[in-house]
Design a protein around this nucleic acid. Structure first.
Lengths: 133, 133
DNA sequence: ACAGCAGTTGACGTGCACGTAAGCTCGACG
DNA sequence: CGTCGAGCTTACGTGCACGTCAACTGCTGT
């Protein structure tokens, strides 16, 4: 059940993606499932990465940007220079994300105000179909 | 200077977009600049909408979704039923955005931790090029 | 032995969000 | 009067993120 590896089908159901998507991500070097003969076997590492990939996508990052980010999450064998560069990239992404969150917060506030206004209008036009003009 | 309308060129510089983009948005009914003969004149309303469009894009909304949202921001002559529906859509978008913000907050925290770790690694590998293995 | 099914590799198709190039129009200016 | 630049339309091209289809391979059960 809670085996260490999963087939492509199991991954698809667990994460609600298609096989095509997983193969595509592998071709872009976002995932690196091990091979048993010809078949792919997805490890715990792949599952963690996929989770991050899907989250990154929801934030509007491109797959290429996500690949950069994943490098940070899974260093471990990088050289100093490479690691330093990765840290820099991550710092930039981090401020991107913080800016994005701040904007989002503002937008939420604005939308809430609009909603209040809209709801008042709906309430006001209850029963009077021809309030316009 | 602070005239009520702007040319396409002025819009482009003000918002850092291309003419093509503005025409494209018009073709998708996101903007509706008035025409003076053949030329487009962008009003204050268009500028407000464009600002919202660009923000929406940064949040990962599609242009079609943004169009839905803009309907809410610029109602004014909607019927009751239509307005009610629009309010519903907006409520859904709002919870989308709040979920997105919460996720983003979590991701920011995680990335910060990773960064701290990464920076420690960088510091630790100062001067010793061959620390690996 | 053979059907059936999960999985695989190309290769081409698709929708979105524009970019880019061609050719037209129109008012301003020397 | 020509032409110059700003803007216009039409139409095809592009990059990304997959979808779709065809043709294979390799177990699995009967």
């Amino acid at each position: 059940m809670t085996e260490t590896t999963m087939t492509i089908r199991e991954m698809c159901e667990a994460f609600e993606v298609t096989p095509r998507t997983l193969r595509f991500y592998e071709s872009k070097e976002l995932l690196a499932p091990i091979r048993q003969g010809q078949k792919r076997l997805f490890t715990k590492r792949d599952r963690a990465r996929l989770k991050l990939i899907l989250r990154g996508k929801r934030f509007g990052f491109s797959l290429e940007e996500i690949r950069q980010l994943l490098d940070l999450y899974y260093v471990g064998d990088q050289q100093h220079t490479q690691l330093k560069r990765t840290v820099e990239i991550a710092r930039e992404r981090l401020s991107d994300m913080e800016r994005q969150r701040d904007e989002l917060t503002t937008a939420i506030e604005e939308l809430k105000e609009q909603l209040n206004w809209g709801e008042k209008m709906v309430a006001a036009s209850q029963g009077e179909q021809k309030a316009a003009e």
